[in-house]
């Protein structure tokens, strides 16, 4: 069993790199897009608010698997050509962005109206109120669900193997196809995913504790 694992390890490391890359891209692009669209949903003019609401509800209403195949097969049909890697990243990012939008909205709307008014009363402009008053307080509410979502993104990235992208999951399946030894490899794979996500959630608990002195 150990032999099988040691034999597989170099293959898996290549897959692991793709898993990490997909997760990193998904998480960072969706963070930026979600923050911008989240603010658009709260503060934007009506058409933009409606568009963002529609976007978020639609994306969140579609199973992620369907979304992946939809992007992979559907986008080329309207002239956007992706390889399977970017199709997978795009689909996962769209999905994650919709989540981030909702985290942002929930976090910002949890801040009482009086906070913004107190900022107005001392003469802060809109953007100064956001950066000095609203966002620092909203951060504490945003972080826990968002970091939870990061571990989801790592686990969810395994779905890209369905498009033939050689991520950790796909690498595992390839090795099994050669050696016919499924169990040791799945155990090893599960262990690697667990190590990544356990580190992430430990980190998040530590962050939460550091932020907990800020009373909401």
């Amino acid at each position: 069993m150990l032999d099988a694992m040691i034999y597989a390890l170099p293959f898996l490391m290549e897959g692991l790199w793709i898993t990490v890359l997909v997760s990193l891209l998904t998480v960072s692009i969706s963070l930026v897009a979600g923050l911008v669209l989240g603010c658009a949903l709260i503060y934007g003019p009506l058409p933009l608010r409606l568009f963002t609401r529609l976007f978020s509800d639609t994306i969140r209403g579609i199973p992620i698997l369907v979304l992946i195949f939809f992007v992979y097969y559907g986008f080329p049909a309207i002239g956007v050509d992706f390889d399977s890697f970017w199709a997978a990243v795009t689909a996962l990012t769209l999905f994650k962005t919709a989540q981030v939008i909702e985290y942002v909205r929930g976090a910002v709307e949890s801040i009482p109206r009086g906070q913004s008014e107190a900022g107005m009363a001392i003469g802060l402009t809109f953007s100064e109120r956001l950066t000095s008053v609203i966002f620092p307080q909203a951060l504490r509410r945003f972080l826990p669900p968002w970091i939870n979502g990061v571990t989801d993104a790592v686990k969810g990235s395994a779905l890209v193997s369905l498009l033939g992208v050689t991520d950790l999951m796909h690498a595992i399946n390839q090795v099994i196809g050669r050696t016919y030894e499924a169990m040791p490899l799945y155990v090893l794979g599960a262990f690697i995913y667990f190590v990544i996500n356990f580190s992430l959630s430990t980190l998040s608990r530590r962050l939460e504790r550091r932020l907990s002195h800020v009373q909401a």
Partner: peptide
Amino acid sequence: MVFQSFNLFPH
């Protein structure tokens, strides 16, 4: 302006 509910910045 001083508010009934203080509205200090809690952070």
